[in-house]
Design a protein around this nucleic acid. Structure first.
Ligand SMILES: [Mn+2]
Ligand SMILES: [Mn+2]
Ligand SMILES: [Zn+2]
Ligand SMILES: [Zn+2]
Lengths: 141, 141
DNA sequence: GATTAAATAAGAATTATTCCTATTTACAAG
DNA sequence: CTTGTAAATAGGAATAATTCTTATTTAATC
């Protein structure tokens, strides 16, 4: 898994400054390496340490980290968009625990199964996600 | 495919009133049987005929139609939630055209492929959607 | 036609996100 | 170490989607 040093390098390597607010945002994701976090969660933790950091800055920073592949977006239906520290660079999908919010990578991708069955439709993207309960949450009542 | 009469019956059968605004909302979906519509699109068409209908009413009506299985929610990532007239009662997924917005049913479901591979995780729900360009949109430049 | 619970309109309130702009800062060059 | 400069930020206003509140209206029943 990627570490803090590499994130700083990736930022600078792409020509971005390594600022205080950006470090705070990065730290939040490393503090919860498997959780799915809404921007407002990230903002709350950041402001816990530095109350004057603006929402706008956190939104922009998270978007930047997404562009750099440091965090991944997770598409829950209703709620606000969530993110987690990227679990890998290869293509993968996710198992999402509906109780504790843990997000685990799933290597299997169903795309090959379907590519022949959609004559005439040219696929450029897809989404596949599984929702349920992780081992730990099944055992705790 | 379901028709207007059946929708009215389903409403009344479940104890709901068949009101003017509800009829207008239903008509919008029948007028675009394959399109994906955001609530604001539905609202705009409804207000075209009856300008005083409130957003709240349209939101509540669409939610009700979803509960009754008349319309299906479609999960696009960023944008507002969208809906289309349900394309069937059996479990299925969707092909979504990124240009014209057409939404076509896909019978294949990848769930069986994965159920053995996720030891310890109990799946209760899943999402699978394909995005791309439909035949017509591929041919028009 | 009268009764009544359900539904609606209108506007306020919330929530997530983006925009605006004056000020600050990371970083590099001297 | 200073200084110059573009990039980044703070703070507050603006937008957009959705929900809430409450007084009024109405579909369905009697
Ligand atoms: Mn991942
Ligand atoms: Mn469908
Ligand atoms: Zn895939
Ligand atoms: Zn399925």
């Amino acid at each position: 898994m990627i570490d803090r040093e590499q994130v700083a390098k990736r930022l600078k390597g792409a020509g971005y400054k390594f600022t205080g607010p950006r470090r705070l945002v990065i730290d939040v994701f490393f503090r919860h390496p498997e959780a799915s976090l809404a921007v407002k969660d990230v903002l709350a933790e950041v402001q816990g340490e530095c109350p004057h950091v603006s929402p706008d800055t956190v939104y922009r920073t998270v978007a930047l980290l997404e562009k750099l592949g440091v965090v991944e977006p997770l598409d829950f239906s209703d709620e606000a968009k969530k993110y987690r520290l990227a679990c890998g660079t290869e293509h993968h999908h996710h198992l999402v625990c509906l109780r504790c919010g843990a997000v685990m990578p799933l290597q299997y991708c169903p795309l090959v199964e379907v590519e022949d069955g959609v004559e005439g439709f040219s696929i450029v993207d897809h989404r596949f996600e599984l929702y349920g309960y992780c081992k730990a949450c099944q055992q705790t009542p």
